[in-house]
Structures are given as C-alpha cells and as structure tokens.
Simulated scan of single mutants.
Amino acid sequence: MDWDKLRIFHAVAEAGSFTHAGDVLNLSQSAVSRQISALEEALQVPLFHRHARGLILTEQGETLNQTVRDVFSKLAMTQALLTESKEKAAGRLRVTTTSGFGSCWLTPRLHRFLEKHPDISISLILEDNDLDLGMREADVAVRMHPPRQPDLIQRHLADFSMPIYASPDYLRRHGTPTTVEDLASHQMITFGGYHPPVPHINWLWDAVTTASGGGPKPPRLEVNSLASMANAIASGVGIGSVPLYACAQYPDLVRLFDDLPLPTVDAYFVYPEELKTSKRVSVFRDFLLAEIHASKR
C-alpha cells in the first residue's frame, strides 16, 4: 500500500468528505477523489459509502483506518522522541485540559513558562472531554480526575476546594444568606451542559434542593462554562460554587459558609509511558508544580 495514498485516505476518513480533506491537505477535491479510487482499486475493496451528505467508512474502511491511525500516531510519537534533545527542552508540546482550568488558571501563567523555555512552543487544547493520549490527540493532559487508561503515567498536582461565592454588590442588593436553606430564595448559578468539567460541579444546588425539600426556585442562570460561571458570580448575577482556581482573578468575591464541608477537585498531570524521558514533558510538569505551590503561598 502506498504511504501517500494512506495519508490521504486517513485525512478523508477523519474529515468525512473529499472537499474538507482537500482543504487540510492543500489538494483539489478531484485529486483527493482520484487517490482514494486508486487505493480502492489496488485493494479491490470499497473503503467509503458515497452519499449526498458526505462519506461513511465501509467495514473494510473502518478496519484500515484503525490500523492507519495507530501507525501514524506511533510515527508522530517516534518523530517527537527522535527530534528532541536530551540536554535541552525544545519542540512543540500539545497540552490538553478542561476549558475552565485552561482559561482561568493555566493560560494566564503560560507566559512565564514560554519565557523560561524559548525553544518550546505550546499547542493548548481546551476540551472537557478526555482526549486520547495513547492515540496522540495530545502529548500531556491536566485532568480533574485520575486517568482511566491503565497505560498512562499520572502525577497528582493539587486538590482544589469548591467554595461558595457571591459578589459584594449581590449581597448588598439581596442580603447575605446564613444557612443553606436560605439559598432556596436566592438567585443561584449552576452548570448546565452534557459534559461536566469537574465532578460534583452542581453539589451546592443538590444541597439546596435537599435542604428545601426539593422546592427551590429554578437556577437564575445555567451555563456550560466554569469561566462564565465565575464571571457571572463576580458580575452580581447570583451565588454559585466553582473550583478555587476559577475565581482566582476575582479577589473581591465574598466566600460564604466557611464552616460548611466542601467537595474538592483533584488535578492530575498525565502523559503516555513513551514520553517518560521527554525533557519537554518534565520541564512542563515542574512548571505546573511550582506554579501551584506559589499560588498556595
């Protein structure tokens, strides 16, 4: 099988159309189509079902694409290891983490890492779903739960509590609640979405529902972003609970119910076994640990 045709096949399988694959590969739609037809002719099997809305892999196409994906991910890993200097951290590091941690905590600190390591560039992928590090969708991850894949190395970074916050302006207008039951009559901000960025994100709403016998008024605002939740709390929309790192840029916020037990979010630095000797990975891990230690001080 021709490697160039396999590369084009993989791009088409991921894009779902000749046109979109051509945009990625900088080839015309007709050139991409000819390469796929030639590959199908060489293999004597159809790889795609063609229809008006795009392309769907056949069973044979699924089998081939799985193998090609594995091969290209291994090649990408090998290339990164071969080109990396053992003495000097250099190259591109693809980092994935949740949108909340990435936008609220990590991004404002990255300039210090990049200044210290001028030969490293960062590709930051903010995604609340876990990317597959084994398939090279990213090099390393900061996750808000222990890794579920058994072949990944993990390092516990920190546990962040989830305080209850309100803005001074909100408390002036609506009064300060003294019990969890009081929150049933206040304007609450909760997370609303299919992919919770951290466990127990709506623990406070659950507690208010239980304390009020299941009858609080609906949340004033639901939003599928931790950063937006923190912004809404700081803007005086209502009361909410978010991880400590999400509200670090709003020092005027008032923490409520200091004596109430709070859930915590455990953050882990995760990377594949193949990158355990990578200089880029080790310096980035050390940077995260140093920044977390400094923020605790």
Rank of each mutant, 00 (worst) to 15 (best):
P163T: 10
S235L: 13
K86Y: 06
P263M: 12
Y268C: 00
A248C: 09
F269I: 02
S123E: 15
T176I: 02
I122E: 05
M162A: 02
S228Y: 14
G240N: 10
A11Q: 03
A13K: 03
G100N: 11
F257K: 07
R143N: 06
D128H: 09
T179Q: 03
P197A: 03
I122D: 05
P251I: 05
T210N: 11
D258H: 10
E59G: 10
T83C: 12
G214D: 08
R220F: 08
A76C: 06
S241F: 12
M162I: 11
S28D: 11
W3G: 05
L289Q: 13
V32Y: 13
M188A: 05
W203S: 03
S241K: 08
T264S: 14
H195A: 10
A76D: 15
D70K: 10
L131F: 12
P199H: 07
H117T: 07
F269C: 04
P251H: 07
Q60W: 10
A232I: 03
T176Y: 02
F287T: 05
I292Q: 02
A227F: 03
F48D: 06
G91T: 07
T67C: 13
Q60F: 13
T210I: 15
L157Y: 03
N231D: 07
K74N: 11
K5S: 12
S212C: 07
L43D: 00
P272K: 07
L27H: 02
T19V: 09
